[in-house]
Design a protein around this nucleic acid. Sequence first.
DNA 1: GACACGTGGCT
DNA 2: TAGCCAAGTGT
Length: 373
Amino acid sequence: MRQDWTSADFSAALLEWYDRHARVMPWRIGPAERKAGVRPDPYRIWLSEVMLQQTTVVAVRDYFRRFTERWPDVAALAAAEDAAVMAEWAGLGYYARARNLLKGARAVVAEHGGRFPATREGLLTLPGVGPYTAAAVASIAFDAPEVVVDGNVERVIARLFRVETPLPLAKPELTALAARLTPAQRPGDYAQAVMDLGATICTPRSPACGICPWRDPCIARAEGVQAELPRKLPKAAKPVRRGILYLARRADGAWLLETRPESGLLGGMLGFPGTDWTVEAPEEAPPVAAEWRDPGGEVLHTFTHFHLRLALRVAELPETAAPTQGCFMMLSPAHLPTVMRKAYDLVRADQASATGEVQASPSKRSGKTTRRR
DNA sequence: GACACGTGGCT
DNA sequence: TAGCCAAGTGT
């Protein structure tokens, strides 16, 4: 800590800034309301925190609104059908979060009488709630003085104290430094304030140091290295994997779909049947005997740890065709994960151009990531 | 500790 | 444009 700034000075300066510049969010109780005694709804804080894991505020907003309209409290969510929750989560990514969300809601109802645990330790027992989320919910929803360390806080603290150790090695050091700054007064507002600071001022590139409430004590800023911190260990290169997806359309317009296995990539989500996604070129493995043709496009998609190039095959099935083992038929499939949505849009575009019909605009999620050959 | 696990926006 | 980045967790 800088000799001239006490821990109380840090929180005072930040909270004063937060009182004037707090971002407005659908799940948040603003500083003025909080001072007036309004308490946040733990269900909404928990839901928002899970959605915000590795996900931007902009991406979360509409999903949060739809979830809370459909399932206004934890009891309603606990009573929801699995497929309904997975469908509502489609497009948001990291689908294990949705599966754990449902397990977590059911655990709150079954094991905690429908009320969220109010402590970090209690929250940590819920599936999908790790160190960050437990501390965030405890502090934001229950005003417990927990140390909240997310990517924003790591960046802010690394700069404030000029921590040169690369992430993720620096995590313990950053957590210890963050702990020294966490106040006993207004811990919930403080937690949100540090994250707002990281999101709006102490940004990854070109931070706005001139208007930062912590510019004076910031060591990285004083030494001109703020934009280089935090340092990070180099990431592994992403290999390319390939696969084939089979899109079968029955004469009545229904498509052949499957629910993917509960665990693993896109677990529990809807998808078109296909081959495994491997580094080597895949062998043909159609899910049903039919005249499969190549529509001449390719789906390009990048996951966290690999690039994917999917070839497509399409077929028309007779009206009488029954779904094959493990599959079912669905009209105008909605709620697909993005890679499946891209494949669907590409095939629809191909059909439209073949028949000369005007096509409804495909999802925005398809963009430049499909390619004509 | 290392790796699996999505997505869209920005540079 | 290829890569980086965003309120991480589970195994």
